[in-house]
Design a protein around this nucleic acid. Structure first.
Lengths: 192, 192
DNA sequence: CCTGGCCATTGAACCAGGACAAGAAAATGA
DNA sequence: TCATTTTCTTGTCCTGGTTCAATGGCCAGG
C-alpha cells in the first residue's frame, strides 16, 4: 500500500524508517469510484492526494461552460488545488476521478503535523511543487507557440499511456482545442 | 537595501533578527543596466534574484524565432529558471532586464548554505513556488479559455503598472498574441 | 538639429481552428 | 440482450487572430 509513495519520497530526500512509517501513519487510504468529484468549484480543497492506482483529472470550467483540463494525475502523481488547500479558500477547480482509484490522502492538519514533526518534508513538498511549476511553464509556452498537431504529438510522446485510458475529449480539453478538431488532427495524422 | 526583501520574507515565516541578518549577509547586491541578458538559452541558471528595483522579464524563443514572455518581474518579485537552477542543467529560457535594475542574488551555493543553516527558509521557498504555480495554473486556464480582448483587459487589471513601463510588443508576447493584433484590440477598446 | 532605428498603427489577404449539425460507433446499464 | 447515452467522426461554414507590407511617430546618438 505504501511502496509507491515511499519510493516517491525516497527520491526527494533520505528519510529514516521511523520517519517513513510516521509519514505513512498520517496518510488516509481511500478507494474512490470512477466519475467521482473529489472537489468542486466553491469548495475548499481539504486534501493532497497521492495516486496509488487510477486516473484523476483536475479542470476549470469557463464562463461558457467549456472545460479546461489542467492535469491528468495517474500512478505516482499528487493531485490537489494547492492554493485552496494552503490558504483555506474556495477553489475554482474541479477534481474528478476518471477511473476507480486508490489514493493516499493528507489533510491540512496531517500535513501541518508532518511538517512540524519532520521538517525535512518541507523539502520534499518544495521539490514537488517546483517540478510542477517548471512543467507548467513549459506547458504554457507550448500552448502559446505550437499548433494543434504538434501539441497532440507532443502529448502522445510525453504521456503515452493516457490516450488509452481516458476519453479523447478530455485530451482535447487538456490541449486547448475542440474535440472535433482533435479528431480531425488525428485522422490527418493517420493518413500519413 | 534589505527592507523590501526582509518585508517579503517576514510575510512567509517569523525569522529572528539573527536569522534575517544572516540571510542578508548571503545575498549579493547587483546593479544591472537595461537590456542586459542575465541568462541565455543553453546556460545553466546560477541565480535566484529578488528585484529591488527595476523590471525584468523571462521568455522563451520558439522554433520560428518568436518570443513568448513568461513573466514580468518587478519590485518584490523573484526571478530565475528554477528548473535549471535546481538541477544544474541548461536552461531553455532567456532572462533580460527591461530597465536599469537593482537585484539581490542567491547562488546555488548560498541558497544551499542558507537552507542548511536555517531550514525554516525551506518553507519560504515552498510558499514562493506555490504561489507561482497557482498563478501559472490560472494563467494557463486564461490563455486557453479567453479571447484576446479579455486577456488584455485582465492584464491591465492585474498588472496596472506594467503597461507604463514596458514596450507593448512585450505585453503581446506575454499574452500570446501578435503585436499587431494587440494594437488592434487597443484601438477597438479606445473607441468605446 | 538631423538621422537611423525601433515601435505602434492600419489595412488587406489569408488561415487555423471553432461552432454547428448529423451520423456512426462504442460503451453502459437495466 | 437491447436500449440509451456517450463518444467519435465528418462536412460546411465562419471568425478571431496572423502575416505581410506600408506609414508615421519617437527617441537616442552623433
Amino acid at each position: 500500500m505504501y511502496e509507491a509513495i515511499n519510493r516517491y519520497i525516497g527520491l526527494c530526500a533520505n528519510f529514516t524508517p521511523g520517519e517513513t512509517s510516521y509519514f505513512n501513519s498520517l496518510l488516509q487510504f481511500r478507494k474512490v469510484k470512477k466519475k467521482t468529484l473529489l472537489l468542486q468549484e466553491g469548495e475548499v480543497c481539504n486534501f493532497e492526494a497521492f495516486v496509488n492506482k487510477g486516473c484523476i483529472r483536475n479542470y476549470y470550467i469557463d464562463e461558457n461552460g467549456a472545460e479546461v483540463t489542467l492535469q491528468f494525475a495517474i500512478e505516482d502523481w499528487w493531485v490537489s488545488d494547492i492554493a485552496s488547500f494552503h490558504d483555506r479558500k474556495p477553489s475554482h477547480m474541479f477534481i474528478e476521478t476518471l477511473e476507480d482509484c486508490e489514493i493516499l490522502v493528507l489533510t491540512p492538519e496531517t500535513k501541518e503535523e508532518l511538517l512540524h514533526k519532520v521538517p525535512k518534508f518541507e523539502r520534499m513538498f518544495r521539490l514537488m511543487v517546483q517540478r510542477n511549476l517548471s512543467r507548467m511553464q513549459e506547458r504554457l509556452f507550448q500552448t502559446i507557440s505550437t499548433n494543434a498537431t504538434n501539441k497532440y504529438l507532443d502529448f502522445l510522446e510525453r504521456y503515452p499511456s493516457i490516450p488509452q485510458r481516458v476519453a479523447q475529449h478530455y485530451i482535447a480539453s487538456y490541449l486547448g482545442m475542440s474535440p472535433e478538431f482533435l479528431s480531425k488532427v488525428r485522422t490527418r495524422l493517420a493518413k500519413k
